[in-house]
Design a protein around this nucleic acid. Structure first.
Lengths: 189, 189
DNA sequence: TAACAAAACTAACGCTTGTTAGTTTAACTT
DNA sequence: AAGTTAAACTAACAAGCGTTAGTTTTGTTA
């Protein structure tokens, strides 16, 4: 068990608060109080509120990017790739559930370079996923529905997974992966 | 074309701003500026910021509740009910896309009675949907996956629909309904 | 045209916000 | 024991917040 730096502690506590009320509704004094120190003391470890937000969001965003890029170059079927995307999301969600709340709801409060970097990563990610689906449709692996409908129906589910994971008692990861892959790919009927 | 009351105009403008930056990041002065008046003038029409939020959220929440309750009492198959839930969400999304952003992201900033009312409605809604799915599994219409996985994978997609509808060029409503029902029920494989 | 109501205005309030400056305490290293 | 550094503190700032009070303008009705 690695010990956390003070900075990492702040980021962890902040992520927890952002998860509950959103970035704009959490003050530096709120974060400080949760750590039992005064707000000004936070600045010994971080440069400002914005740095906290970008550390939380960009760190997980990079995990998605790396995971996706590792996958696209593999020579496996399109359906298999979709399965791997699902599993990637589940793994990241289990480990960074609270950071995902910020990523989903507070990304627009990133500033300048941070914002640009995030938006770029998200666009690339979606484009990669879109290509996988189109490839699957072209070679007959995937039914020929509007690709955008398939893309967003799967991605919506995966992106909101963190909410459900926090609610009702954290379903077992492996059962989740198995049923999720089935439901999203083979349907419910 | 019915003319809007000044109050309704404020609510519409506010919903638009909340959609972009979230409730806490939008000030009364922001809303006023978007209407070309001063912040204090808003109070001739509404009692405060909280009333704006609750009008936006609770109005659509009631549409969902009414739609769902009309459905549960119908004597149609479980799958048919799921289809109707999907269509209900699509119809509401098309008409109130911006209000849905507030409903999804800012409901936690509702206060006291407003918050209680919302949470109750949402719980009832989910419970109704859960019952439909369980009924479908029990009588063999729906595959026997973990009901919670089915519930949240469909509901996640429907709840985030407003985001995708705002992005890429608003897919035609009827194509959307048709493909969406197919993807969510019959799968993509 | 006088009266009334609707809807805007200016000015200010008390409070919270993110952040800075300067200082003190606590904990290691020599 | 002295020196150094990490990490806390107090105090304050300028700006922004939601909201109120009181006043003026605008538009409709009698």
């Amino acid at each position: 068990m690695k010990t956390l730096s003070r900075k990492d502690e702040i980021i962890l506590v902040a992520a927890h608060l952002f998860n509950e009320k959103g970035y704009k509704a959490v003050s530096m004094r709120d974060i400080a109080k949760a750590m039992d120190i005064k707000a000004a003391s936070l600045y010994n470890h971080i440069s400002g509120k914005q740095e906290i937000l970008s550390e939380i969001i960009l760190k997980v965003a990079e995990e998605f990017t790396v995971g996706m890029e590792k996958m696209v170059s593999e020579s496996i079927s399109a359906i298999k790739k979709v399965e791997k995307v699902i599993e990637l999301h589940i793994d990241i969600t289990v480990n960074h559930s609270e950071a995902l709340a910020a990523l989903n709801n507070d990304w627009m409060h990133l500033e300048s370079e941070n914002l640009k970097a995030f938006v770029q990563m998200r666009e690339d990610y979606e484009e990669n996923f879109r290509s996988i689906i189109k490839e699957g449709i072209d070679n007959g692996e995937i039914k020929s529905y509007h690709p955008e409908v398939i893309l967003f129906s799967i991605l919506s589910t995966l992106r909101t997974l963190y909410l459900w994971n926090q609610k009702r008692g954290k379903l077992d990861v492996n059962i989740l992966k198995k049923d999720m892959v089935s439901v999203l790919i083979k349907g419910i009927k």
